[in-house]
């Protein structure tokens, strides 16, 4: 049980690191590329960017944690055939994590220039949070379901 809690805490740590990265580096980088115009100040836009980035990351990590809970406590491997459709489940949750970028994309106020540059950041943030946390910390029974996991998870 401790191991399972450790894995979930690890996922949260990945999400926090991603959020810190978004706030500290992404927004700073975007500051140099975005021209807001009269309706909103740059600081306010940055705050909103961080807010929607946080929302996206929270949804992505929730999807990752949901994957962990499903794999650890809901999906049973009593039958070997149960492993067959799990990659589809993982892809659907990954799609949900990506879709979590939509609120930010749709609800961020329009600016004069460079506003759309935030979109790829939202998508990448969510994708990285979901993918890295499931890649490294999926439940043991499904640890190679995330693509590429068999290359990196050799020792745990």
């Amino acid at each position: 049980m401790l191991k399972h809690i450790g894995f979930m805490v690890g996922m949260l740590v990945i999400a926090l690191l991603m959020f810190y990265f978004a706030v500290s580096f992404e927004s700073q980088y975007l500051e140099s590329l975005v021209t807001t115009g009269p309706d909103i100040t740059l600081d306010a836009w940055r705050e909103l960017f961080s807010y929607w980035a946080a929302i996206g990351i929270i949804i992505a990590i929730t999807a990752a944690l949901f994957w962990f809970v499903l794999g650890q406590w809901v999906f049973t491997m009593n039958r070997w055939t149960s492993a067959s459709n799990k990659r589809t489940v993982w892809l659907i949750l990954g799609a949900a994590a990506l879709a979590a970028a939509l609120p930010g994309i749709l609800l961020m106020p329009t600016v004069q220039e460079g506003g759309r540059l935030a979109w790829p950041f939202y998508l990448i943030n969510n994708l990285v949070v979901f993918y890295v946390s499931t890649l490294l910390l999926s439940p043991s029974s499904f640890k190679y379901i995330p693509r590429g996991a068999s290359l990196v998870r050799q020792w745990w």
Binding site: A83, K143, S150
Partner: peptide, 14 residues
């Protein structure tokens, strides 16, 4: 679809 069985990758593929 070997990703379904981690033990296969550990004991056979690797």
């Amino acid at each position: 679809a070997e990703y379904r069985a981690p033990w296969y990758i550990n004991f056979f593929k690797r």
